[in-house]
Computed example of a mutant assay.
Amino acid sequence: MMSEVDELLGRDDTLIWIDILQWDEEAVRLLTDVLHCHPLAVRDCAVRNRVPRVRIYPEHHLLILHGPERGPSGHIHYIELDQIISHRYLVTVHGPLNPAVNPEVANRETDAVRRRLESGRLRPGSPYELSYAIVSTLAQRLESFIEEITRDVWHLEQRVTGGHMGNPEEFLEELFQARHGLLAVRTMGALGAEVYGRIVALGKSIPESDLLLIMDVVDQLSRIKGLADGEREYLQGVIEFYRVRAETKMTIAAERLAVIAVVTLPITALSSIYGMNIIVNQSTHVPQLLAVLLVMAIMSALLLTWAKRRGWW
């Protein structure tokens, strides 16, 4: 592979795309000895980068982006895609990946672009044009991910407006998992736009046609951020609706329990007094018993009337 790339570099009419599916020593030698990439760029391709970034070197640019993949319990995997872009070649590096993620997920965007190349539907004229096709496919994936989360949000909203309460703990977890997904894709879009915005700001050496493509990528990723923000605000409204309803039910239940406690308070007080050992009777005194029960009823009725006037029930 290294000899083939070296031979292609000697041809001025050839656009080279090197897609490194798995990082190994051969990949290190290719980037270092054949393409003469900056050592820091090689290092960044070898390790996992948790934040998108751009590195501007004299002969090439390093771009690091992320795409989303759903995991269990609402977890969102960050699928890393590294790009080294020169005026002659494009290198794409996948991963490192979490062992729980299917390796085919990392190749989703590059495989789609490869199929377009093989079918003749895509004929890039520069490495940045080829990179544009890959990142545009990634932006479409981000948009599709928002669509998937929005479908879940709609189902959750229908359950909330339909009066569903169920298990509040489990339902709130579903709501917050959906919000976490939107927040993750929003972060990917926002940081990706910042990365490409940096290239636009320092793009004096980039041809105008490629610079226009980079500006379009900034617009695509910024719109991803806007879409995610809009859906997240909508979901936040659903969460607040559900929480207010649950809290209202708890408040009403607490008020009713308070009324019950207040009504039974005089009965408990008189029963406690008559249950003391200081009062000893050898037999039941019916008039006295009726008088005590009458006092209990009157006190309870007065308290119920007062609670009604206060609007407690």
Rank of each mutant, 00 (worst) to 15 (best):
R243L: 14
A258T: 10
R116Y: 15
A190G: 11
K225P: 02
R108S: 14
V185W: 05
Q220D: 06
S73C: 03
K249P: 00
T161W: 02
I273Y: 05
L257Q: 02
E118G: 01
I273F: 07
L293V: 13
R123Y: 13
D210N: 10
A112I: 01
R53P: 04
L183C: 00
V295E: 03
L221S: 07
R310K: 15
R88S: 08
V153A: 13
A246K: 00
V101M: 00
Y128I: 15
T32D: 14
A253G: 00
V47M: 00
I278D: 00
D111F: 02
C37D: 11
D216Q: 09
G71H: 09
L302C: 13
G10S: 13
D229K: 06
A133P: 08
H60T: 05
G189C: 13
D111A: 05
L117S: 08
S144E: 10
I239K: 01
L191V: 09
Y274M: 09
A253R: 06
A41D: 04
S126L: 10
K249Q: 09
R151A: 14
S222R: 01
Q288H: 02
P68A: 03
L227I: 10
T137P: 00
S86V: 13
R123C: 12
L117P: 09
V47Y: 03
W313K: 03
A190I: 01
P127F: 13
G67C: 11
V217Y: 01
I146A: 05
T161S: 07
V200D: 04
V105L: 02
D152G: 13
A133E: 06
P124H: 04
V160T: 01
E255G: 02
R243D: 04
G311L: 03
N107Y: 11
A190C: 00
K249I: 07
I267L: 08
L122W: 11
G226A: 12
G162V: 06
L40Q: 07
H60I: 05
H75W: 05
E255R: 13
G162Q: 05
L202E: 15
D219H: 14
Y57A: 04
L90A: 03
D210C: 09
Y242M: 05
L15K: 07
R53H: 10
A190R: 10
L202D: 13
S86H: 12
G181Q: 07
P168W: 03
Q236K: 04
A261Q: 06
N277V: 13
N167Y: 03
N49K: 08
K225C: 11
M1N: 11
C45P: 08
L213K: 12
A100V: 09
I149Q: 06
G71N: 09
P266T: 07
V47E: 09
P287L: 08
A307H: 01
L235T: 00
D210G: 09
L257N: 04
V113S: 11
I239P: 06
G275Q: 04
P68D: 01
I84H: 06
L8H: 14
V259R: 00
R123G: 09
D13V: 15
R43N: 11
V286W: 15
E129R: 13
R232D: 09
I134E: 06
T110I: 15
R243C: 04
F171Y: 08
A301F: 14
A139W: 06
G67E: 10
R232C: 08
G74P: 12
A258F: 04
I20N: 02
R141E: 10
E169H: 04
